[in-house]
Design a protein around this nucleic acid. Sequence first.
DNA 1: CGTTGTTAGTTACAAAATCAACCGTTAACT
DNA 2: AGTTAACGGTTGATTTTGTAACTAACAACG
Lengths: 144, 144
Amino acid sequence: MAQDDFDLQDFLPYLLNQAAEASSLEFQKVYKDRYGMLRTEWRVLFHLGIYGRMSAREIGRRSKMHKTKISRAVQKLAERRFLTRTTDDNNRRMEWLDLTAQGQKAYRDLRAIAMRYDAGLSEKLTDRENAVLRQALRKLAQGG
Amino acid sequence: MAQDDFDLQDFLPYLLNQAAEASSLEFQKVYKDRYGMLRTEWRVLFHLGIYGRMSAREIGRRSKMHKTKISRAVQKLAERRFLTRTTDDNNRRMEWLDLTAQGQKAYRDLRAIAMRYDAGLSEKLTDRENAVLRQALRKLAQGG
DNA sequence: CGTTGTTAGTTACAAAATCAACCGTTAACT
DNA sequence: AGTTAACGGTTGATTTTGTAACTAACAACG
């Protein structure tokens, strides 16, 4: 009984959010239940796993997460021995973050799950939809 | 200096989230600064504005928001006289939610902004990308 | 040097989301 | 009717996030 020609399902910010939430749900269960991680935490883990050692600032630049979120995620990951922090000698404000062996292991485990999970999502879409979707999302993610 | 063939930018849950966040940012500013609303609140407002009178439960079913979020959003919107609540005579557990004149006005104002904003986002994409994107997102949003 | 500004990261406090337990009402079954 | 379960919605405690103000280290400029 629509009273209106505007449709929430066509409003991109809403639609994107619905899709994002629906499609993170199962993966969230894994990193949460199996590793007790938060979204921020697996993101930091993945940045280090994929790109190798970097600083918190650099993770922020790439992920657009706020520095306080990252700071707290790093703290927790360090407590749990998933990463180590080493202050840089030339610039003692910054720290290099490295995954420990344990961190690498968790990363590889989660990565495998992520890949399978992503493949499962892709199956819901045609090849063309997959290609165009990812392309379009990248444009939108850039912001501006 | 990737060490890895897995790319975060190809992982749909991540990519969707990046796009969702980037694309809600400016709209958020509007409903927050102009109406002091939370995301949950404009969503409730929009559901009532678009589809007309309904119960909190029905909003939850459609939006997949948790009932506590909705309950609190409804409270705030009622306090601010954007909607009224009427308990159903045949089932006194439930309430019918209706926008007040003031609520309708806020809705129409925000809807106009949303439409312009959505149009702006669409301009970043080709027609084909727009069509395929929305189609694909709807599939993903359904979950399962 | 000394002041001022910037950067990398942390902390404290307020705002919001989550989770479980809770009411009052209705439905289902005996 | 009497008991139990389910429903629609609320509340309170805890967790997580967001915002601002804060270190400590460095850089730039006089």
